[in-house]
Lab assay of single mutants.
Amino acid sequence: DWEDIVRFLRKLFELGEEVVIGDWHNHHREEIKRLIEWLEKHF
């Protein structure tokens, strides 16, 4: 279910905002944000 995936990604992203998950999070933050925005537009 796409909504569950979007919710999971958003939760992960919000957690990442508070607890910076090292370089991985910083590197992928923009991609995650773009992916969430893309999914919201399409689903």
Rank of each mutant, 00 (worst) to 15 (best):
D1K: 08
W2I: 07
W2M: 02
E3C: 12
E3V: 09
E3S: 11
E3N: 09
D4K: 15
D4H: 13
D4S: 15
D4N: 11
I5L: 09
I5T: 02
I5V: 07
I5S: 00
I5W: 11
V6M: 07
V6F: 14
R7I: 07
R7N: 11
F8N: 02
F8L: 08
F8S: 01
F8Q: 04
F8D: 02
L9W: 03
L9K: 00
R10L: 13
R10I: 10
R10G: 03
R10V: 13
R10Y: 13
R10N: 11
K11C: 14
K11P: 02
K11V: 08
K11I: 11
K11L: 11
K11G: 05
L12Y: 05
L12Q: 01
L12D: 00
L12E: 00
L12N: 00
F13S: 01
F13L: 13
F13I: 03
F13T: 03
F13R: 02
F13E: 01
E14Y: 06
E14W: 07
E14H: 04
E14R: 10
L15M: 07
L15I: 06
L15Y: 09
G16E: 03
G16M: 15
E17F: 15
E17G: 10
E17W: 14
E17C: 04
E17P: 11
E18H: 14
E18G: 12
E18Y: 08
V19D: 06
V19K: 05
V19N: 05
V19E: 06
V19F: 02
V19H: 10
V20C: 04
V20T: 08
V20D: 08
V20A: 09
V20I: 14
I21R: 05
I21M: 12
I21K: 15
I21G: 11
G22W: 04
G22N: 10
G22Q: 05
G22I: 12
G22R: 04
D23L: 07
D23V: 05
W24T: 09
W24F: 09
W24P: 04
W24I: 08
W24Q: 10
H25A: 10
H25Q: 10
H25L: 15
H25I: 14
H25T: 05
N26A: 11
N26P: 14
N26W: 10
N26M: 07
N26E: 10
N26Q: 09
H27V: 09
H27W: 08
H27P: 11
H27D: 09
H27S: 10
R29C: 15
R29V: 11
R29M: 08
R29E: 06
R29Q: 09
R29A: 12
E30W: 04
E30F: 08
E31W: 14
E31N: 09
E31G: 07
E31F: 15
I32Q: 01
I32T: 02
I32N: 00
K33I: 11
K33R: 11
K33L: 06
K33N: 06
K33S: 04
R34P: 02
R34E: 10
R34V: 14
L35A: 05
I36G: 01
I36N: 01
I36H: 04
E37N: 08
E37Y: 05
W38I: 03
W38P: 00
W38N: 01
L39Q: 00
L39H: 01
L39E: 00
L39I: 12
E40W: 15
E40Q: 13
E40T: 13
E40S: 12
E40I: 15
K41P: 02
K41D: 06
H42V: 13
H42T: 04
F43M: 10
F43G: 03
F43D: 03
F43V: 12
F43I: 13
F43S: 02
